[in-house]
């Protein structure tokens, strides 16, 4: 038995311990928002958060995450995530959409640690996520827009306080 915490919910699973986290999410828990792209941590389509840090779930055996908090796109609701998702929708970033769960997870992790990233910082944080439709131009703009929105919310809240 392996015990896991996914999106705040504790799960007990009887599963081959070397199964990658990605396949536990997809085949066991039927949480299919996290995608297979390469199986080698090269494309980022499988990105989830492990204790808040973006990781590639295709290359992490489930046995290695037993004590971690795993967040997938299905369970995201942080301020940064909501701002990212809204910016993605406002700018219609998506094309085929298949890589976008991973893009959004990486972008959210970036904004949780860097409130005002530059183009270069965005490129560095997002270069592990491939998009074959090449929506990169809009991804960059959406991250800036999300950062601005978070900044405005924070200053409004701060002002009121």
């Amino acid at each position: 038995m392996i015990s896991l915490t996914i999106n705040g919910k504790k799960q007990e699973l009887d599963i081959d311990p070397d199964t990658p986290l990605l396949w536990v999410l997809r085949d066991e828990l039927h949480m299919t928002g996290t995608k297979l792209g390469c199986g080698m941590a090269l494309c980022g389509a499988c990105t989830v958060h492990m204790d808040g840090t973006p990781v590639r779930s295709c290359s992490i055996p489930v046995s290695a995450v037993a004590n971690a908090n795993i967040q997938t796109i299905e369970g995201m609701n942080s301020v940064a995530f909501q701002a990212v998702q809204k910016a993605w929708r406002d700018l219609d970033v998506v094309q085929c959409g298949y890589c976008q769960s991973g893009q959004i997870m990486s972008a959210t992790a970036l904004l949780q640690t860097n409130k005002k990233p530059t183009d270069e910082q965005i490129d560095a944080a997002m270069s592990g996520n491939l998009c074959r439709c090449a929506t990169y131009h809009r991804i960059r703009n959406a991250i800036h827009q999300a950062a601005d929105a978070i900044g405005k919310t924070a200053s409004t809240v701060g002002g009121k306080a």
Binding site: E74, D92, G97, Q100
Partner: peptide
């Protein structure tokens, strides 16, 4: 706005893989 943006930004869009 695109009609597929919402589903493709919350993990619910269904591809063959899913």
């Amino acid at each position: 706005p695109r009609k597929d943006s919402a589903d493709k930004t919350n993990g619910t869009a269904i591809y063959t893989q899913d």
